[in-house]
């Protein structure tokens, strides 16, 4: 019996972690009137999508999803490319001073965004990129690639030398070696990086909040966060908005679960 007690206590703890998700889902499908009379804990009488539809239309949620996809997708692709180029030079090319260059990339990754935000705000204004998705894409490409460079350099540092040697003997130049040998062989790691960059960028809040002020450009977290701050939603609409914010995250989690758990461990101990 005792062994089951341990299992059940872990299961109860895990269930407790999920309660907030459940409560949100429960109330997102209630009508405001139902919520007012029965409170947040009663089961809904039926599934009402009014709150969700109202919220969706009010913030043009489709547009916010689109913005988030465009920004996160572009960043993920570009940051993987930049990371590969950097790591090729540092991990395989072993250029001089690579240790120090690597330290610079690592520092760039750990810098708090607060220390960059005002100059970035100022500079994007100067070059006419303020309040554009382009600016956010470029900035996060650099920030994510800084981490990617750090991680990938150590991975490529252990790249089988025989393969490089074979490519050289076959007459491949450095560029061809990169494209035809290094990239295909490292594809699994690059896949993990892609997933991470995508989700991290999707979840970013601070810089997008400052740099994307117009409604048309906002990402999902920024739109939700700003609306929450204005305290203009009723309880069912708030839970509807939370549900709409949660759904993509859970979808990514389920789709990418493998890569995620493999990746965080790789990133942590390298």
């Amino acid at each position: 019996m005792r062994r089951h007690a341990v299992l059940w206590s872990f299961a109860a703890l895990a269930a407790l972690m999920l309660v907030p998700f459940g409560v949100v889902a429960l109330n997102a499908v209630k009508t405001p009137a139902e919520y007012a009379t029965d409170g947040p804990l009663s089961l809904p009488d039926g599934v009402s999508v009014t709150g969700i539809v109202d919220f969706w239309e009010r913030v043009d949620f489709g547009e916010k999803l689109f913005n988030s996809f465009v920004i996160s997708g572009s960043v993920a692709v570009l940051a993987v490319v930049v990371s590969v180029l950097n790591a090729y030079a540092l991990g395989i090319g072993r250029v001089r001073g690579r240790l120090w260059i690597l330290v610079v990339f690592l520092i760039a990754n750990t810098l708090p965004q607060e220390a960059l935000v005002y100059p970035l705000y100022f500079l994007t204004n100067k070059v006419g990129l303020y309040d554009t998705k382009t600016a956010v894409v470029v900035i996060f490409t650099v920030i994510q690639a800084a981490f990617g460079t750090y991680l990938l350099t150590s991975t490529l540092g252990g790249f089988p030398r025989e393969l490089l040697e074979a490519a050289r003997v076959d007459g491949a130049n450095k560029w061809q070696t990169l494209v035809r040998v290094v990239v295909p062989v490292s594809r699994p790691t690059l896949g993990v990086l892609f997933v991470f960059f995508f989700i991290w960028t999707w979840n970013e809040f601070f810089l997008p909040l400052v740099l994307l002020i117009s409604n048309d450009n906002q990402t999902v977290p920024v739109a939700l966060g700003v609306l929450q701050g204005q305290r203009m939603m009723d309880a069912t609409m708030t839970s509807a908005s939370a549900l709409l914010g949660v759904i993509p995250a859970i979808a990514f989690f389920l789709i990418f679960q493998r890569a995620l758990t493999r990746g965080i461990t790789a990133g942590a101990v390298k």
């Binding site: 180029l85 810098l111 960059l116 005002y118 100022f122 650099v142 920030i143 450095k174």
Partner: peptide, 24 residues
Amino acid sequence: SYLWFLLPGALLLTAVVLVPFLMN
């Protein structure tokens, strides 16, 4: 040199992180 491969990354890093940081 392999340094060419580092060029885009280094330029971007300078423009987006290093210069803004020093400005700050």
